[in-house]
């Protein structure tokens, strides 16, 4: 159970609650008994289908009943149905699970059932793909509502990626970039949106739709904004690390180090500034020390060590981590 506050109940209060729940409990038990018995008999009737609706409305976590519901459709309701009524049935199920998700946004089984429905929507009507297109297009609107309610819900983000990758009429990926911009501008600390952005960019670069160097320069500007807005927010710093990557581009690495040093002057105790400087200076040593020689390498190393010592006082819970890195650096 997550986020449910504890209340101290007297034995009398517990007994009274149980008394109140008696009839609910009796109803639930007879419903589940009925549904399990029908399932055992491979009863694929509409009547049993309606029964699964009632059980799942009370308990959407009852995965066996979701399975039974799908089997009723596959082996019963679909068998004698026209494509049109199959489409109607599945559209109804999509609506029903939209309601269920509003009340239970983190129940895996509901999200799964939705995928199954979506994948089984017939093409039609006729030779067109309109049913399929309509249903898949609607999914994006649904998942956007879910992300409006909780912008970090990873079920919703996973589902979003799944829909975008599989919808019959693909949306241009640039549209997804715009979506993550909106999410990030609404809240800089939404790491899920930053993450999505990193995936979209990777794909846009791989397909040659965007120029990697140019995007990285643009992104460094955006992330700098976030870093200046709240230097303690991890999301922007993590994304910044992704942009720098393995640090092969010496020019970017050095200009970012300078930019972070400027921010550090304004925020002399910013752990994330110092931590990132250590990381980027280490990358500079690792990738480029052959270019600038032993003396400068020594200087960078000693800067890293003194930053790491400072971090041990600034961020005591992780002091052993900083010390371990000092030891690694001393060994090189």
């Amino acid at each position: 159970m997550h986020g449910a506050r504890r209340t101290r109940q007297t034995p009398e209060a517990i007994a009274a609650r149980k008394q109140r729940e008696q009839s609910k409990l009796k109803d639930y038990l007879s419903l589940t008994e009925d549904v399990i018995a029908r399932r055992k008999k491979s009863d694929w009737s509409k009547d049993s289908f309606d029964l699964t609706t009632r059980v799942l409305q009370i308990n959407p976590e009852f995965y066996t009943v979701w399975n039974y519901r799908r089997n009723i459709m596959s082996y019963g309701l679909f068998v004698e149905s026209s494509p049109e009524s199959i489409n109607d049935l599945l559209s109804d199920d999509l609506s029903m699970t939209t309601m269920a998700l509003k009340a239970h946004p983190k129940v895996y089984w509901i999200w799964n059932h939705r995928r199954w429905c979506l994948e089984n929507v017939p093409d039609g009507p006729g030779d067109s793909h309109d049913w399929k297109k309509a249903n898949w297009n609607r999914e994006l609107a649904v998942v956007e509502k879910m992300l409006d309610a909780d912008a970090r819900n990873f079920h919703a983000w996973n589902y979003r990626r799944y829909v975008l990758a599989n919808m019959p009429e693909r949306r241009p990926e640039a549209a997804e970039l715009a979506y993550t911009t909106r999410k990030i501008e609404a809240n800089f600390s939404n790491f899920s949106a930053w993450h999505q952005r990193s995936k979209v960019y990777t794909s846009l670069w791989e397909s040659g739709q965007l120029n990697r160097e140019k995007s990285i320069r643009d992104e460094l500007e955006l992330v700098k904004n976030a870093m200046y807005t709240d230097p303690n927010d991890q999301s922007a710093w993590l994304y910044h690390r992704w942009l720098i990557g393995s640090g092969n581009d010496r020019e970017i690495l050095e200009s970012e180090i300078t930019a972070i040093e400027e921010l550090l002057e304004e925020q002399p105790d910013s752990k994330w500034c110092i931590e990132s400087l250590v990381h980027y200076k280490r990358l500079l040593i690792k990738n480029h020390s052959a270019e600038f020689g032993a003396e400068q390498t020594k200087g960078l190393l000693s800067q890293c060590v003194s930053f790491l010592l400072q971090l041990q006082t600034l961020d005591p819970p992780r002091r052993n981590m900083y010390q371990d890195i000092v030891d690694t650096l001393s060994a090189t």
Partner: peptide, 12 residues
């Protein structure tokens, strides 16, 4: 077993 929550969590 006389508690609703007990039965609602049978799937776990």
């Amino acid at each position: 077993k006389d508690d609703l929550t007990y039965h609602m969590t049978a799937h776990l």
